[in-house]
Design a protein around this nucleic acid. Structure first.
Lengths: 148, 148
DNA sequence: TTTTAAATTATAATTATTCTAAACAAATAA
DNA sequence: TTATTTGTTTAGAATAATTATAATTTAAAA
């Protein structure tokens, strides 16, 4: 982890190591403030600005990606590889969705545009919340793309 | 246009009609402030809050869609039908991209998730800016999904 | 060590958006 | 038509997330 920071030309400070450790393998897509609140007890001097600085440095280095799937708040995903995200409107959780870029019918439509990146956000209800609200009833494909 | 508002149970005020007229057929995806600045000369009493109120009312009624494709600002699209958006990092323009939901390989992966909506944002360089920066050189498909 | 360049911190500033409460206007009732 | 009600607009204050600032501290190089 220290060497990972060094490789990026970043100093291995305790704060950065703590942030990296918290993010490592984390599937919860925390916001900057989530991270701050979680670490503050162990690092009483920690500043929210440091959390933002570190996240921005890591994002710029391609070590993580920002997820903008909710209204006014960014979330952070330690997995920088391109994949989609699903937001459950009941429990407000964000889930990773592995979708191969090739599965999205973009390429054939590119024409004269240079597509360097894409973001695919999905919205709906996750399996756990579906079970609670509908007793586990199966949803058929026809409803899948209808707006709420 | 008046009847459109009436149908939604909204009063046909001059401000709302002006906003509707400005948006009608507009492909520029303006922000709330773009709209405000554009209409202010003709409606000196216009308030930014009214622009936001009207946009929110229209969005809730399904008459337009919000586009969240840039960092901290929302844009508005008078076309409420599901389609993707392309953001050019050179000229900062937003373009509509007609992509059929069925062309996105989501359905087959849904499993136990209920997908009610999706957002597909594309980032890169638009044809006009490509011409200026690269002399019109054609980009081959292999580069299409590489991050910058 | 000593140095120096980078990082952290507290706080102020910024930006987009939302809230508030008063003034106003449109539709309805008398 | 006038009065009343209800919804709308307005200016400005408030908010929330994020970014900038400037002084202090720290990691790593010399």
């Amino acid at each position: 982890m220290i060497s990972k920071l060094k490789k990026l030309g970043l100093k291995a400070t305790p704060q950065r190591l703590a942030i990296l450790k918290l993010l490592d393998g984390n599937k919860l897509h925390p916001s900057a403030e989530d991270i701050y609140k979680r670490l503050k007890p162990d690092f009483p001097s920690l500043s929210l600005a440091t959390v933002y600085n570190t996240l921005e440095a890591l994002a710029k280095a391609g070590e993580l990606q920002e997820v903008r799937i909710t209204a006014g708040k960014r979330h952070f995903d330690p997995d920088p590889s391109p994949h989609a995200h699903f937001y459950c409107r009941i429990c407000n959780s964000i889930y990773d969705w592995r979708i191969n870029p090739a599965d999205i019918g973009i390429a054939s439509r590119v024409k004269d545009y240079l597509v360097e990146n894409y973001v695919l956000n999905l919205y709906g209800v996750c399996p756990g919340c579906l079970k609670e609200t509908e007793g586990g009833k199966t949803i058929n494909d026809k409803t899948l793309f209808e707006k709420e």
